[in-house]
């Protein structure tokens, strides 16, 4: 298939109102869909030459109480990029894993799970990738306050560090 318009027509007739396809830029199309249709649409795209998954992005829409997952695809045949977007509720966020379609998606999903708390059932490894010994909210959520965290976690006041010479015997008069 050489013509992109034919492909779009085929897409629209195949999925009809389950997905909305629009043209964003000259070389970028956008498909907005739901969680249930995600795997089908990604599979379809992969079949029709969009076989490069560049990355997966998570966007936190705090007012809408939703997360947006963006799958960034690229077709070497048409030289065209395609964004597949889904929205998931923020309270119990989960999305199907695309690990079976693209092997590299495993790490992307692991990272999103670490930084947003989105759960991907079926992903074999969702352990902590970058953070060390983390107990707080996932740090890239909008309701996480990094300034306050840094103040409490790493500064002298936050850690309650005492001057080191207090340990010495003759330190009574030296404080202040």
């Amino acid at each position: 298939m050489k013509d992109i318009n034919e492909l779009i027509k085929k897409f629209n007739s195949f999925f009809q109102e389950k997905a909305v396809l629009t043209r964003k830029y000259k070389q970028q199309y956008q498909i907005v869909t739901g969680r249930d249709e995600l795997l089908g649409i990604l599979n379809w795209c992969k079949q029709y030459s969009f076989y490069h998954l560049a990355n997966i992005v998570c966007v936190d829409w705090l007012e809408d109480e939703e997360f947006e997952l963006v799958y960034n695809l690229w077709s070497y045949e048409f030289k065209i990029g395609c964004l597949v977007k889904i929205r998931i509720p923020r309270a119990r966020p989960w999305a199907p894993t695309v690990f079976e379609l693209w092997g590299q998606a495993q790490v992307y999903e692991q990272e999103i799970h670490e930084f947003f708390g989105v759960y991907f059932p079926g992903n074999p490894d969702l352990s902590s990738l970058f953070l060390h010994n983390w107990h707080d909210l996932p740090p890239l959520r909008k309701d996480f306050d990094p300034v306050e965290y840094s103040r409490q976690a790493y500064t002298v006041e936050g850690l309650g560090v005492k001057p080191e010479y207090e340990k010495e015997d003759n330190s009574e008069g030296r404080e202040s």
Partner: peptide
């Protein structure tokens, strides 16, 4: 312990 508020994983 968590620094600000502990994360309660819904899953």
């Amino acid at each position: 312990d968590a620094v600000l508020q502990p994360w309660e994983d819904p899953f």
